[in-house]
Design a protein around this nucleic acid. Structure first.
Length: 267
DNA sequence: CTGCGGTCCTGAAGGC
DNA sequence: TGCCTTCAGGACCGCA
């Protein structure tokens, strides 16, 4: 599922393709996906592509913006002029004046695209990895405020932006912390280990251009899979030996989501 | 504040 | 082979 590294990968690849191009048509094949009015973006030039947490922002020359959320299995695919290669589950097609197209595909239709008028970049409430406010002091303060299991706090987009199920599991394993520990039970030392693990793992995942695990629909802009799934240590590894202590990796349901961890060495 | 269950949606996987 | 059931899951919402 697209989390921070996947959305960041798409952001970088998309910026190379569409900055400077003008949108001349938007084709909507699945109406529920597109929120707002098409005319917000028609005739506008793309001036930048940004990202906040898991949300992509396409900034337009007219002061408006298109925001996109991939949710579970949304995809952006690029088609150059004359490239008619087929795609499945296409919901929205952006046409540019040079004949190139950007496809938004989503088999489950959980994702969305929002056309925003007079878009202003308000400051986000959540702290976010790779932003200056994601320091130990702020991170520890977020954890200290909640008795909920630490994994759920990591994935709470109102508190920390960009972390989903894959990287929450992997970061907690790297920091040797049980996903079920109340967030406020972590020491400063443990919080520091966890913070550092998050930054390190997300950076490595960005370097690998995201994760395309066995159930993952994530693909890069050109349709090719990412590479970080080859570095998973616990995610989708239930039944296999823990690479650290050899005990079996366990899968357990936590708030409706699969939690993968080593009960022996994550304390 | 916290947790729980339901909702959206449909491909994939498992059972018979 | 094929039909039917179950599961997964990010964000959100109502309710206890």
């Amino acid at each position: 599922m697209p989390e921070l590294p996947e959305v960041e990968t798409i952001r970088r690849q998309l910026a190379e393709k569409i900055v400077g191009k003008t949108i001349n048509q938007i084709e909507i094949l699945a109406p529920k996906i597109f929120i707002g009015e098409v005319k917000t973006a028609i005739g506008a030039k793309v001036v930048g592509v940004g990202r906040v947490a898991k949300v992509l922002r396409i900034l337009l020359s007219n002061g408006n913006a298109l925001l996109a959320h991939f949710k579970l299995n949304g995809q952006f695919f690029w088609r150059g002029p004359g490239d008619d290669s087929p795609a499945r589950f296409t919901c929205v097609i952006f046409h540019f004046t040079d004949g190139s197209r950007l496809l938004f595909n989503d088999s489950r239709k959980f994702g969305w695209i929002k056309a925003m008028e007079n878009f202003s970049e308000e400051s986000a409430a959540a702290i976010e990895p790779f932003c200056p406010d994601f320091n130990l002091k702020n991170f520890f303060a977020v954890l200290a405020k909640s008795r909920r299991p630490v994994k759920l706090v990591l994935m709470d987009q109102e508190k920390i932006g960009g972390i989903g199920n894959i990287y929450a599991n992997e970061a907690l394993f790297a920091a040797r912390i049980s996903p079920f520990r109340p967030a406020n039970s972590l020491s400063v030392n443990e919080a520091e280990k966890l913070r550092n693990a998050i930054v390190k793992i997300l950076q490595k995942a960005i370097d690998c251009r995201g994760s395309s695990g066995k159930d993952e629909w994530y693909r890069q802009l050109d349709g090719s899979p990412g590479g970080y799934q080859n570095h998973f240590l616990v995610y989708q590894k239930n039944g296999q030996k823990c690479p650290r202590c050899g005990d079996p990796i366990t899968r357990q349901n936590q708030a409706g989501r699969g939690t993968f961890y080593c009960p022996a060495c994550q304390i």
